[in-house]
Design a protein around this nucleic acid. Structure first.
Lengths: 229, 229
DNA sequence: ACAACTTCTCTACACCGTAGACTTTACATG
DNA sequence: CATGTAAAGTCTACGGTGTAGAGAAGTTGT
């Protein structure tokens, strides 16, 4: 009786009803593999073996779909405001975030841009959670709320900037990276870009983790010095 | 003889041939006024009283057009690598850049995102010029080239991050800003976002210039301390 | 006057997001 | 079982998009 031998196994889950989670994670996978432009309603529908229109049950429109993807990605982060050593915490969070960014480089433009079109208070909750957590962390560590906000701003500012920097210098195929990079830089007129050209090798072997950590050290050093005064 | 009484004055410059500069600056104006989505080939053509297709003489495709807009915007920046006081220079550049960002907030997503899709060496020259200038500035100030690169990365990273942060908290209509902001934050579940809600007033009166300067101080302090060791 | 070249326009195609009406499916209740 | 109701999915269609390709119009040099 019952379900007529429907193979709900690995490959073509044709009948199981959709869910917001399934839609969003499929969307994320699609973006990871083929980039933001590939994420169209039609294409996503095809990926899920559904009519594109059915997606509108789970996201009001394409913009909402994009917001959903950013939420899914941010959910990969876990922030425990417990550890009393806030500096170590901030370091850990930054590195976690960095890894997440490298896992989903194609999503970062979204993560960075979407908030610009939505006033802070109206953003999807998943987006605001990291902010709240970090504030909690700092306040628990003894900062006055207003100071916590300032520290957060400096920290998050620096941090987002680093990610963007790193992704900009990130080259897809690491084998050819040096060749391509130098080739690209070689294209620059020597007269106008002497330093950039000279620094080609230095640019080529970029270690994001080290760079990030160095930046954090500078930042935290500065913070400590500043707070002492 | 000569030109048959063509009114090439203020309003409808119908006949003068287009130029890349004209196309790009019109595109910029359009984006400034109505946002990125309004910048379509058809719309821009209409703005210039030309067939949309004519634009392809001046930009290979829409992506190139976007790159062009970022170049125009970056051209508003002037960096003189002369002043020996590099810290003051970095401060000034940051503030200049900030003002530029506030002048063209709708362009910032472009400025931040476009480079992510183009390997460093292949980017439009206008985009790389600030980088070269800042490197020159630091090297002239006595840094070893490799160190200059590190300083640049930390500085620019922090700096881009600040801009994003500020634009995120930027509210369009300053009269309603507080109301909207609080309203938005009030929407948040009190249980999950206690700190964010408490900090609503602090979020409301954000002074970008002060915040930026404070961040720079922290950064430069940290740098000095770090370099001393 | 003619030719060569640049600039601009026309037409057409494939693809996009999504409104609105419809069909199918699942399930609770009599 | 039959039937009513709500949810899930589909179909069709509309106005918009970027841009290929062929041609028209305008400009310039000889």
């Amino acid at each position: 009786m019952a379900t007529p031998e429907k193979s709900n196994n690995q490959k073509s889950a044709r009948k199981a009803p959709l869910s917001r989670d399934l839609v969003l994670s499929t969307a994320l996978a699609l973006v990871d593999e083929e980039g933001l432009d590939a994420l169209t309603m039609r294409r996503l529908g095809q990926e899920l073996h559904r009519d594109p229109m059915s997606l509108y049950r789970y996201a009001a429109n394409r913009a909402a779909l994009l917001d959903g993807v950013t939420e899914v990605v941010l959910d990969e982060l876990t922030i425990f405001p417990d550890d009393p050593d806030w500096q170590a915490q901030l370091r850990r969070i930054a590195h976690d975030f960095r890894l997440m960014a490298l896992r989903h480089p194609k999503v970062m433009p979204l993560l960075v841009t979407r908030p610009l079109s939505t006033p802070l208070g109206l953003r999807p909750l998943g987006t605001l959670r990291p902010l709240e957590r970090i504030l909690a962390l700092l306040i628990d560590a003894g900062f006055a709320p207003a100071d916590a906000l300032h520290v957060y701003r400096v920290y998050y500012g620096f941090f987002y900037g680093h990610i963007l920097n790193e992704l900009q210098e990130y080259v897809v195929d690491p084998d050819e990276s040096e060749a391509i990079l130098r080739l690209g830089l070689h294209r620059l007129p020597a007269k106008e870009f002497p330093h950039l050209r000279t620094l080609a090798p230095a640019l080529a072997d970029y270690d994001g983790a080290v760079e990030l950590d160095r930046g954090l050290t500078i930042l935290l050093t500065g913070l400590a010095t500043q707070l002492a005064a």
